[in-house]
Write a protein that binds this DNA or RNA. Sequence first.
DNA 1: TTACATGCAAAGCATTTGCAGATAA
DNA 2: TTATCTGCAAATGCTTTGCATGTAA
Lengths: 150, 150
Amino acid sequence: MSSETNVFDPFSAYNIALRKIEDSGIRPTKQRRVLAKMLFEKGDRHVTAENLLDEVKKENRKISMATIYNTLKQFTSLGLIREIVVDQNKSLYCTNNKSHYHLYIEDEGKIHDIPTKNINLDIPSIPACLTLHNIDVIVRIRSLKDNKKK
Amino acid sequence: MSSETNVFDPFSAYNIALRKIEDSGIRPTKQRRVLAKMLFEKGDRHVTAENLLDEVKKENRKISMATIYNTLKQFTSLGLIREIVVDQNKSLYCTNNKSHYHLYIEDEGKIHDIPTKNINLDIPSIPACLTLHNIDVIVRIRSLKDNKKK
DNA sequence: TTACATGCAAAGCATTTGCAGATAA
DNA sequence: TTATCTGCAAATGCTTTGCATGTAA
């Protein structure tokens, strides 16, 4: 392990998240810090509550499912993560904060980010009484073989 | 009521749907015909299973929820309707068969179609081994007042 | 000290399923 | 006649909630 491994980087995704948590007034509890580490120290991720629970278990820690759900919602409302809706039966959260779209491989259930610059999208202007919250673009693809079987 | 009301139009959305049902091999049962009428004789609609059940009740008919769910799935796989995923907790089905995007007013839970021509979207070409299934574009807006209350 | 957080188990809710009875062809 | 469909009620699975206990400030 090089000495650089432990250099404190105030601008790491994790430290930025931690500061936003503190600034927002919610407490940076142990559970929240552990989950923030998982979410923000592994690059851009797409996770479900279940994924996180499994990961917590693998590290021999213990955080309840209720807390994981609460935390995901809090992080979402703080703007740390983004909820993406690709299918009805499971909530997916995306840790990529840069503006981007999604590529969803339906038969694999896998999702990938598409940088905004790779898709050109022009939408009409929004009336003054309304605010644009977000634009979700999900490009849904299937592998050919899956498509063939009707 | 003018006599034209009962003129048979083989190209009405309902009759087209009915033919697709027959052609596909599934039986045009009473329930399926009633639901097809509700879906296709009222212009472009966005409905949930619950909406349809309520409508059925209002007409003093009775179709079970299980049948409504089954029918919505069958109609979707026949390509008669399209499932749109705006939020995790309820499936919405859209009867507009023309290519289009969606405008979702988050604080009202209302959804509207946006004709494709009003949005310019350029996506990169898809590798030959994959098929593009669909591109969902959901423009999410909020009314200003809702936005203010943090 | 006390307001806020966590964990558990129970509740909630949309959707699916198993199966007996009904129905279209 | 028989393969298919419907309706009921029970099951499922994700998510939320109520509440007692724990913890950060």
